[in-house]
Write a protein that binds this DNA or RNA. Sequence first.
RNA 1: GUGGGUAUAGCUCAGCUGGUUAGAGCAUCGGUUUGUGGCACCGAGGGUCGCCGGUUCGAAUCCGGUUAUCCACCCCA
Length: 388
Amino acid sequence: MIKALRGMKDIIDDSDKFTAFIDKATQIAKNFSFSYIETPLLEETRLFKRSVGESSDIVNKEMYQFIDKGGNDVCLRPEGTAGVVRAYIQKKYDSLQTPKQWYYYGPMFRYERPQKGRLREFHQFGVESFGEGSVYEDVKVILMASKILDSFGIAYTLKINSLGCDECRPRYTQNLVNFLENVKEELCEDCQRRITQNPIRTLDCKNEKCQNILKDAPRITYNLCDECNKDFELLKQELDKLGIKYEVDTSLVRGLDYYNKTAFEFVSDEIGAQSAICGGGRYDKLVEMLDGKSVPAVGFAMGIERLLPLINTQTKRDGVYIGIMTEDARDMAMKKFNQLVDTQKVYFENKVRKLNQHLKRADKMNYKKVLIAGEDEVAKGEFFSKEL
RNA sequence: GUGGGUAUAGCUCAGCUGGUUAGAGCAUCGGUUUGUGGCACCGAGGGUCGCCGGUUCGAAUCCGGUUAUCCACCCCA
C-alpha cells in the first residue's frame, strides 16, 4: 500500500472544518479591505535565504530544496511572507509606494521531524500589509487575527513583545550576550550554543536552572530606543482600548530573522507542545533586504492544522434526501433532483430501497428532509415527504 | 538531528507465564418491520497480528533487525 509521505496528511475527516475556517477567515480579511494574493509554491532558494535568514533553522535544515531540470536552485516555500514580498517588489509597488493589503492561504513545507501540531506539509492562512508604518496598522492586524479566532470560539492567550529596531536591537543583543558570557559555565548546553546562534532564545529556555539565572538577564522592553518604546506603549494602549487582552512576553522572539518592533503570538494550551496558533509582527526592512525600496510592513500567519482541533462543529441537519422504492419512480425523482440541486444541497440515492431503509439512511447521513417515491407516489405524482 | 513509547478488523483496544479455529465495543451492511428514521434485538462481511529473520514440537505472545507511527527536545504555524 502506498502511503502519504512522512509528515504529510490528508485533510479528510476534518475537511468541513478546514473549509469553514478558510471561508470565515477570508470573509473577515475582506471586511478589513484585504485582497487575495496567490504566489507560487516553488521559489528560488535565495529568496528564502535572504528573507527568512541563513542562520535560521528553517533555512538551515528544514527546506525542501532541489535543483530543477533547468538547473535552478529552488525550494518549496517554508513560509508565506517571502513570496508575497517578492511579488510586491516584482510588481513595482515598492517604487510606486503603493500600499497593499493581502491575505493568502495554502500549503507550506518544512523538512522537520513530525510531532503533535507539526507537519512537513501544513497550511497557513496569512495576511500582509505593506506601506503602513504606524502602530495602528499593527493593531489592525492583531484585531483581525483575534476576530478570526473569536469567530470560532477558540480560547487563546495573546503574547506581545517589541523586538526593537536597527538602532536599539543590536545594542540590546550586545548587552544580553555580555550578560550570558558571564554566566556561561552555569547554562545548559543548548543555551551555551544559543549565545552565538540566537541569544534571545535563551530567555525562554525550559531548563529550570537556566531560568533561575536568566530571570536577571536584561530584557528588550527596558532597552528600547525612544521611538520603539513609544510605539510599544501606544500598541498596548490601543489594544486596551479595543478590549483585546494580552500578555507582554519579553522572551517572545519570532523564528524568522526579518521581524522588528512589534512581535506577537497567539497561543493555545490545548494542543500540545507546539502551542503557537498564530504568529506575526512587523518587518520594516524586509522589502529592502529583497532589493526593493524601503517600505514598512506587518503581517501574521495562522497554522490551520493547529486550529482544527480547537474548532468544534455541531453537525446540523441539512439538505434533501431523495430516494426511490421502485425503478418506475426514477424518472420522477431524477427530475426533482435536477430541479432542487440548483438552489440547495440534495442527495440522490441511486439504489432502490424500502421506505424504512431510506429513512434510516437519510437520518444517519444527517439530511433535514426526505423525498421518496414508490408506486403510489408515481400514480399521484407527489412525493412522500418528511422532515427529520 | 537527539531521546522515549507504540505497531492485532475501517476506528478504539483486549489477548496472562508461548498451546490448537485471533476477540470485544464502535462503525458498515442486512434482518426483525413487504410504506414511516433515531431505540432494541438477531445476523453478516471485514485480519499476511507492520515487515524480515531467529529460538521452539508450536510464536500475535520470547529474541534480533528493519520500517512506519506517536510524543518530546532543537525549532516553529
